[in-house]
Simulated assay, not measured.
Amino acid sequence: MSSPAILSIGQTLRAEWIKLRSLRSTWYTVACLFGVGLGITGLAMSSAGQQYRTATVEEQQAWDPTNLSLTTYIVAQLIIGVLGILIVTSEYATGQMQSSLSATPRRHRLLAAKVVVATAVAVVAGQALMFASFFLGQALLASQDVPNASLGDPGVFSAVAGGGLYLTAIALLAVGLGTIMRATAGALATLVGIVFLVPVLAGLFPGWMEGLLDFWPTRGAAAVFTTVPDPAYPHPWLNLGGMCLGVAAVLVAAFVVFRRRDV
């Protein structure tokens, strides 16, 4: 009996892309990302004009129309996180992981292909959502006759592009969590804890851990969405870089765990 053909790296990448795009859950999640994301932007900006007109002089000076239109990332990161998790856990749920490992016995190659596909999808979807949210938000601000921004203004393009990179990092974090836990519910609960619970409970942490929050999602790393400098996080790209290093550490752990498991 001949042994099954082993896929090359190019074939593995193509197979992973075919599997991802053939899942209805992928398209539902992407549709939800844009539907919910742009819907939140529309709702948030619909009353922004009134907020500006009733704000104090200090609040008006700190007015950041770019950041206002990008606050949809708070929910978008969970949705794109679900997509990252499903890239791995959907195969465990259906039992297809056994077939994938038979075709690609080099486990690091299989997981690397999933990471590459997840990165490509998240970059495209994340950047598209951030730019769409920005343009929608600024159009709504202009219609309310309050200060708005354009891509050519100082810091605007980097905030919008940085937002897409932030969402990509969250998607890769989700891939790592999905690989380690092998269950959608457990990985999603952990992701929710990372992006929401830890920042909320930050005040309970000992003083020596406060510096960690400079690189934490929805805290220091989220400063990349702003164009008005925040004294608490004066180096937003450094903070985002620190977050990416943390995500890389989770992915390294995922590769180690995936390689040592039976399935």
Rank of each mutant, 00 (worst) to 15 (best):
P234K: 05
P105A: 04
G137C: 14
T72A: 06
V146G: 07
T56M: 04
W63R: 12
T29N: 09
A185S: 13
V224S: 01
P199A: 02
D262C: 02
S8G: 07
F255P: 02
P199G: 02
Q61F: 05
S3E: 14
V117Y: 01
R219I: 07
T26V: 04
L201A: 12
L238R: 10
P206A: 03
L201Y: 03
N239P: 11
Y28W: 04
L68Q: 10
S3M: 13
S150N: 04
M209G: 05
V75L: 00
G186F: 08
L212P: 00
R259Q: 09
H235G: 02
G95V: 02
A55Y: 04
G81M: 08
A254F: 05
Y73V: 05
A249V: 11
A161Y: 15
A159K: 08
W216Q: 00
P105V: 03
L201F: 08
V75N: 00
V175S: 11
Q127I: 12
A253T: 04
Q60R: 15
Y233I: 06
L23N: 01
V257K: 09
A187M: 02
F225C: 09
S25M: 03
L7Y: 14
V257L: 12
R24K: 14
Q11N: 11
S100Q: 06
W17I: 09
Q11A: 15
V36R: 08
E16G: 10
A125W: 07
L167Q: 01
G35Q: 10
V200M: 15
F255N: 05
L173P: 15
P229S: 07
V116A: 11
F131P: 15
L83F: 08
L173W: 07
G178A: 07
R53K: 06
G211T: 05
G163N: 03
F135Q: 09
V123A: 13
S3H: 10
S102Q: 13
A189Y: 06
V123R: 02
D153N: 02
D153C: 00
